[in-house]
C-alpha cells in the first residue's frame, strides 16, 4: 500500500507474514478525518482480507488525534469485523492521552478475537 499524507498526518504501511501494518505519525486534526481515512482503510482491509493478514495500526509515534478521529476508528472496527479481518491497535500506555483513548475503545471488544488492543 502507498503511504497516506493528509495535512499533519502521515500513515506509512509495511507488511510481514502475519500483518499489514499502518504506522501513524504526526497529528490527526482534520474536521472530517473519516473522509480521508475511510477510503484508505477500505483499501487496507481489502488487502488484508485477500492475503489473510491481520490489520495492525500503530499509534505510539502519533502526537495527537481529535475525537473525530476516534469516530473514524470506531467505523474501522465495524468494517473490519464485518470483513472478518482481525484488527490490532498498538498504543503507548506511557502517553496518558493514548492510554485513556484506547482503553475506552476496549468497549468495542466483543471477545470474538477480531479486535486486539495492545500497549507498548
Amino acid at each position: 500500500m502507498e503511504a497516506l499524507q493528509a495535512g499533519d498526518l502521515t500513515i506509512t504501511s509495511e507488511r510481514d507474514d502475519a500483518a499489514l501494518v499502518l504506522a501513524w505519525n504526526g497529528k490527526s486534526v482534520e474536521r472530517e478525518p473519516g473522509k480521508i481515512l475511510a477510503p484508505y482503510f477500505g483499501e487496507a482491509l481489502e488487502e488484508a482480507a485477500r492475503d489473510k493478514l491481520s490489520l495492525e495500526l500503530r499509534f505510539a509515534a502519533l502526537e495527537h488525534f481529535n475525537s473525530s478521529t476516534i469516530t473514524a476508528l470506531i467505523a474501522l472496527v465495524q468494517r473490519a469485523r464485518a470483513a472478518s479481518v482481525k484488527l490490532v491497535f498498538v498504543y503507548d500506555k506511557a502517553l496518558r492521552w493514548q492510554k485513556l483513548a484506547f482503553e475506552a475503545l476496549r468497549a468495542l471488544d466483543k471477545k470474538d478475537g477480531l479486535l486486539e488492543l495492545r500497549s507498548v
Binding site: 476516534i70 469516530t71 470506531i74 472496527v77 465495524q78 482503553e103 475506552a104 475503545l105 476496549r106 468497549a107 468495542l108
Partner: peptide, 8 residues
C-alpha cells in the same frame, strides 16, 4: 466508553 459503544 458508553459513547464509543453507542456510536458503534
Amino acid at each position: 466508553a458508553a459513547k464509543v459503544e453507542a456510536i458503534a
